[in-house]
Amino acid sequence: MLYTFKDTLGREYSVDMDDKRFRIKPYQQMLSSCTGALLTSILMTPLDVVKTRLQTQQKRMASNRCYVYCNGLMDHLCPCPNGTLKSLKTQSTHYNGMIDAFYKISRYEGARSLWSGLSPTLVLALPATICYFVSYEGTRIYMKDFYLKLNPGQTEQPFSIPLLAGMAARVFSVSVVSPLELIRTKMQSQKLSYYEVGKALKATIQTEGIFGLWRGLGPTVFRDVPFSGVYWAIYESLKVHHDVTVPTFGFSFFGGAISGSIAAFLTAPFDVVKTHKQIEFGEKVLYAEHPVKSLPKVGTIAILRRIFEQHGVKGIFAGVIPRVVKVAPACAIMITSFEYGKAFFFRHNVDIYIEKNGSVS
C-alpha cells in the first residue's frame, strides 16, 4: 500500500506503508485502536444487551429456580416462586423483536439497564482490542514479507493473507479475554449485582475448575474466527478493488460497515450457540434446585441441530438483527479510528526518518 505525500521542501514521495523503515510500532497500534474500542463499547452495549436477551428468551429453563432473585425480566422462561413481581406482575416480558426489547427493558428496568455489563465490556474491550489489532498487524506483515520473499515480482498481498491473519489474531485474542466475556454475558442475560456475579464465578470454579471460566470458548472461536477472517478479507479486497491506498474517513466507515455486516450475518448461528451454552450452565449448575456437578459435553453442531429442530431457522438466527445493527457501526468506528491512527503514526515515523537521514530515497 503506497502512501504519497510531500516533505517540507515540496518533494513528493510514494512510500509503502508496510516499509520496514516506517512501520507503526506496537504501542502506536495500541493507541490507534483503543479510542475506537472505548467509543464502540459505550455506543454499542445497548444493542449487545438486546441481542443477548433475545437469544436467552428462546432458551428453555431446566427448573423454576434459574436465578438468584426475580425481577420480572425472565418470568416467561423462569417463573418466580415467591410471586414478588410488584408492578411487573401483570406485565408481559416477552420481547417481540429488537424495538420491543428496547422499550420493555427501558420501561421495566430503567434506561441504565441497557448498559448492563458495560464495566466488564470496557475491561474486555481494551485487552481484546490490543491483542487483536497488534497480533493482526504483526501476523499480516510477517506473512506478507514471507510471501514477497517467495515471489520477488509481486508487490501486493494476496486475498489469503488478511483472511489467515485475521483468523489467527482472533484465536489469540478470544482465548485471552474469554473469562471476561463470560462475566459480561451473565450480567447482560439477567440483572445481577457484582456480588452475585462474583458468587457465580466462584461456583463456576468450584464445579468445573479454573477452565470453567472458558465455557463457551468453542462456539466463540467458531463465531469470531471466521468472522474475523471474512471481515478482513472483504475489507482488504474492497481497498484493492477501489484502488485505495490510504483510506479516507468515508471509505473506512462504509467499508468497515459492509464487511462487518456480511461477516456478522454469516456467523450469527455460532453467536446463538455461545449464548446458549453460557446460559445453560447458569440454569443447571448455578441456580438449579438440584444442581448437577458438570454438564455433558455437547458439540456446536449438535446444539445448532437442536435449536433448529425446536425453533427452525429463526432460532438459529435469533438476535441477528441487533447483532448486525451493532456490528456494522462498531466495525465502522473501529476500522476508521485504526486506519486514521495508522496513517497518523506512519507519517510521524516518516518525518522522523527524514529528519535523521535527509530523505526517504
Rank of each mutant, 00 (worst) to 15 (best):
A257T: 07
G315F: 02
I258H: 04
V298W: 03
S261D: 04
I258M: 14
G315K: 01
I316W: 02
A263S: 14
S294C: 14
V324C: 09
V285W: 02
F249K: 00
D271M: 12
F308Q: 15
A318T: 02
K326A: 09
L266K: 03
F253S: 01
G250M: 07
K274G: 05
G315Q: 06
R323F: 11
G282F: 13
A288N: 15
L295F: 01
V320G: 09
Q278F: 02
S259V: 03
F308V: 07
I262K: 07
A264I: 02
T300A: 08
I258S: 11
F251T: 04
F253D: 00
Y287W: 14
G282W: 13
I303F: 08
H290N: 14
V292Y: 04
R306W: 04
R305T: 09
F270C: 08
L286K: 07
S252L: 01
F270T: 11
P296E: 12
R305V: 07
A268W: 13
F270P: 05
P322C: 07
A288E: 11
R306Y: 04
G250H: 02
G312E: 05
E309W: 11
T267R: 01
G299A: 08
F317D: 09
I279Y: 03
V273P: 11
G299R: 02
H311S: 14
F249V: 09
A302I: 03
K314E: 08
R305F: 04
G299F: 03
V273L: 07
E289K: 15
R323Y: 12
V273E: 13
V285Q: 14
V292K: 15
P291K: 12
S252G: 03
F249P: 01
G319R: 04
F253L: 14
L304K: 05
A268G: 03
T275A: 12
E280D: 15
Q310G: 07
G260M: 01
A257V: 07
I258A: 12
F270L: 14
R306V: 03
G315V: 07
R306C: 03
K293P: 06
G250V: 02
F281C: 09
A268S: 13
G260D: 01
V298D: 12
G255P: 00
G319T: 02
G256R: 00
A328D: 05
S294Q: 15
A264C: 06
V313C: 09
L266Q: 05
Y287S: 14
F251D: 05
E289T: 14
T275Y: 05
S259A: 10
T267Y: 01
Q310S: 14
F251S: 05
F251H: 08
I321K: 07
K274S: 10
K314A: 12
F249I: 10
A257W: 06
E283C: 05
G256N: 00
V272R: 15
A288F: 10
K274A: 10
K277R: 13
F270D: 08
K284S: 06
F265K: 09
A264R: 00
